[in-house]
Amino acid sequence: MNIDRHAQLKALHLYGMAAAWSEWRAESSAQQKPVMPEVWLDRLIIAEQADRQARSLNYQLKAARFPHHRDLIHFDWSETPLEQSRIEQLATASFMDQAHNLILVGGTGTGKTHLATALAVSAIHQGKRIRFYNAVDLVNQLDKEKQLGKAGNLAKQLILIDAVILDELGYLPFPESGGALLFHLISQLYEKTSLRYSRNRQ
Rank of each mutant, 00 (worst) to 15 (best):
1 M>F: 12
2 N>F: 12
3 I>D: 07
4 D>E: 13
4 D>M: 11
5 R>V: 14
5 R>D: 00
8 Q>A: 07
14 L>T: 09
15 Y>T: 12
17 M>L: 13
18 A>N: 08
18 A>C: 10
20 A>F: 08
21 W>K: 07
22 S>D: 15
23 E>M: 10
24 W>I: 12
26 A>C: 14
29 S>K: 15
29 S>Y: 11
29 S>H: 12
32 Q>K: 10
33 K>S: 09
34 P>R: 13
36 M>R: 13
38 E>I: 12
39 V>E: 11
39 V>Y: 10
40 W>A: 10
40 W>E: 13
41 L>K: 11
43 R>C: 14
43 R>G: 15
46 I>A: 15
46 I>D: 15
49 Q>F: 14
54 A>N: 08
55 R>E: 09
56 S>D: 08
57 L>K: 02
57 L>D: 00
58 N>G: 07
62 K>F: 03
63 A>D: 13
64 A>W: 03
65 R>A: 05
66 F>E: 00
68 H>Y: 13
68 H>E: 08
68 H>W: 13
70 R>H: 10
70 R>Q: 10
71 D>M: 09
72 L>H: 05
76 D>P: 09
78 S>D: 14
84 Q>T: 11
85 S>N: 12
88 E>N: 07
90 L>Y: 00
90 L>S: 01
90 L>V: 03
93 A>H: 02
93 A>Y: 01
95 F>G: 01
95 F>L: 07
97 D>F: 06
103 I>V: 11
105 V>A: 12
106 G>I: 01
110 T>L: 12
112 K>D: 05
117 T>K: 02
117 T>E: 03
120 A>G: 03
122 S>F: 04
123 A>R: 03
124 I>R: 00
124 I>F: 02
124 I>T: 05
126 Q>V: 02
126 Q>L: 02
126 Q>K: 03
127 G>N: 01
128 K>W: 05
130 I>K: 04
133 Y>I: 02
133 Y>P: 02
134 N>R: 02
134 N>V: 00
135 A>G: 00
136 V>R: 02
138 L>C: 03
138 L>Q: 00
141 Q>R: 06
147 Q>L: 08
147 Q>D: 09
149 G>W: 05
151 A>V: 02
157 Q>P: 03
158 L>E: 04
159 I>T: 14
159 I>R: 15
159 I>K: 14
161 I>K: 09
162 D>G: 05
163 A>Y: 06
163 A>E: 06
163 A>S: 01
165 I>N: 00
166 L>A: 01
166 L>I: 05
167 D>F: 01
173 P>W: 09
173 P>F: 09
174 F>G: 04
174 F>V: 05
174 F>Q: 07
177 S>A: 15
177 S>D: 10
178 G>L: 04
179 G>S: 06
182 L>R: 04
183 F>Q: 11
184 H>M: 07
185 L>I: 04
189 L>E: 08
190 Y>V: 08
193 T>L: 10
198 S>N: 04
199 R>K: 08
201 R>I: 05
202 Q>C: 14
202 Q>G: 14
